[in-house]
Design a protein around this nucleic acid. Structure first.
Length: 278
DNA sequence: CCCAAGTCCTGGTTGC
DNA sequence: TGCAACCAGGACTTGG
């Protein structure tokens, strides 16, 4: 499940190889992943554009193309974005665009940029002049944003909803999903069911530190591969070996040995330690 | 049949 | 009282 660290891993890899390259013909488009753009429009406007750079906002990747055109991509829950060489299997590819070199006679390039997503939760938006307008609803980036613990405390104060539910709200902070929410709350020693507004100043401070640190761990280990996540080169990350809470219900807490419990919060499976997390 | 989960939507509630 | 913000839960999707 691509959350901020997985998306950042993919962005970094693509940023190393894509800028300066030119998009060729659109080889495949599944209209199910498009939003606000027709299949023909995409196929008509991408060829010939060069990729200038790749940015990230929360879980979204924004590709800036020549001519003030932007591709805003969300990987959903099983999506990946890869540079593939040769014919290769098509399988779950929802969108594939041929890649050409910017200069020279490379019209017969055999590489392609592919958006692969078995469950069709991912979305691709094409806009002119600015990235997709939906991004303005996002809060500051959870990892790189310039928010502070004081700001977070103020933001949580008025909220009665559970702290985990609020961490999952992209309009509060962008980038945290179910896996990192469980890891962050475990690291902070906070019960995921606690009302967000009930956290004391010291607890919010610990929470803020845990958000930065745990996301940083994820980025450093190139993401978390539970079921199908792979980076832009098709490699797995290794954060899954560092999980202390997510998916560990029924197993022993790495800190105190208690059995981790499972509850459902915001419709999501949630694992926590009843002794360490208060 | 249940579970996985990110985002959007809905209907009901809260509080300023 | 009016209305915006808030909140919980469901829909969507496919594979294990």
């Amino acid at each position: 499940m691509p959350e901020l660290p997985e998306v950042e891993t993919i962005r970094r890899q693509l940023q190393r190889v894509l800028p300066g390259r030119r998009l060729g013909s659109v080889l495949r488009v599944d209209p199910a992943v498009l939003d606000g753009v027709a299949r023909e429009d995409l196929a008509g406007r991408l060829p010939g554009r060069s990729i200038e750079d790749l940015d990230r906002r929360g879980k979204y990747i924004v590709g800036r193309l020549s001519g003030e055109l932007y591709l805003t991509i969300h990987l959903g829950m099983t999506g990946s974005l890869r540079v593939l060489t040769g014919a290769g299997p098509v399988g779950h590819e929802r969108l594939a665009v041929r890649l050409d070199l910017e200069r020279g006679a490379a019209g017969d390039s055999v590489e392609r940029l592919a958006f692969i997503d078995a469950r069709k939760f991912g979305r691709v938006r094409l806009t002119a002049g600015a990235p997709w307008s939906g991004l303005v609803r996002l809060g500051p980036d959870a990892w790189r944003g310039d928010w502070t613990a004081d700001w977070l405390e103020e933001r949580l104060r008025s909220r009665k909803a559970g702290i985990k539910s609020v961490l999952l709200e992209q309009k509060v902070m962008a980038g945290i999903g179910n896996i990192y929410a469980d890891e962050i709350l475990f690291a902070a020693g906070i019960d995921p069911r606690r009302s967000a507004g009930s956290l004391r100043s010291m607890e919010v401070k610990k929470l803020a530190e845990s958000i930065r640190r745990r996301l940083d761990d994820g980025v450093r280990l190139r993401g978390c591969s539970i079921s199908d996540y792979v980076d832009a080169r098709g490699r797995s990350g290794s954060f899954q070996d560092e999980l202390r809470a997510y998916g560990r219900h029924g197993q022993a807490c790495v800190d105190c040995g208690s059995t981790l419990r499972r509850v459902v919060i915001a419709g999501r499976g949630t694992a926590y330690c009843p002794k360490c997390q208060r």
